[in-house]
Amino acid sequence: MSRRVRAELRLERLSAGTWVGAVLLGLFLIVALLGPLLMKRAPTAHDLDHLLEGPSAAHLLGTDESGSDLLTQICFGARLLLGLASAVVSICLLLGVVIGTLAGYFGGWLDEIIMRVIDVLLAFPGILLNIAIAALVPRAGMGVLIFALAVNGWVGYARVTRAQVLRVREMEYVLAARALGVGSWQVMWRHIVPNILSPILVQATFGAAGVVLVEASLSFLGLGPPIPYTWGALLSQGTTYYWRARHLLLVPGVAIGLLVLGCNLLGDGLRDYLDPKSGGK
């Protein structure tokens, strides 16, 4: 990286917490992408001679109720979670940015309708809507989970985008583009959206943390996909053994906690970094 680029980015303004968050997320990516390749067993391989065993040389993180190796399950689960989070975040981001931009740019009745739809979706607090959707399908699965999370997941992105569009809509460069006869479509996607991406990026970081927690909740309630080694399913299994096999509760709990912590740290750091008001430390 040339000195000029480094000066432009001013990486030293990123707080220590941001780096910790980035490292945690990096570790998660490594586990998700490379972990499954290094594992010798299948995540669902049963070993009935070694049920609910604590950490040992053969099973670094111990085994679960059917003798499957917990480390293997965590690695494969990480890959599933990475896929799930990427899918949900990208769907929600795309939907939210498109809807939010349209609402903010055109205003009027379109904005009114979109905002009312958002109000209705926000009337269902927390994971209630996700529970209701996941509960009504005949067979839960990854697709259902993505759908259930995306139904109201885009709202946050849409609100952030709309607020940003309202902010830049009347700025000189946008007015200049319009005065030059650039069409609405072009103004929105080539002039406005590229300039408001940073707060949306921050929202995506927190959004990813939300996906992880909601997946864990839904799996715990028995509404997750029927895969025994998603992180939520592992944690859910751990909660039923809190009185005898503590590693089953600790390992997935700490894994989820660290991942969410990483997202939150990175999100906090990026927000402070991108916020001109904070002006660095």
């Binding site: 809190y242 509760l249 997935p252 906090d268």
Partner: peptide, 22 residues
Amino acid sequence: ALLGISLPAMWLGPMLLNLFYI
């Protein structure tokens, strides 16, 4: 505070039970 928003609730509950009940 950061830990509080990062820890999954369904982990915290059983952990509390393990501590104060078991």
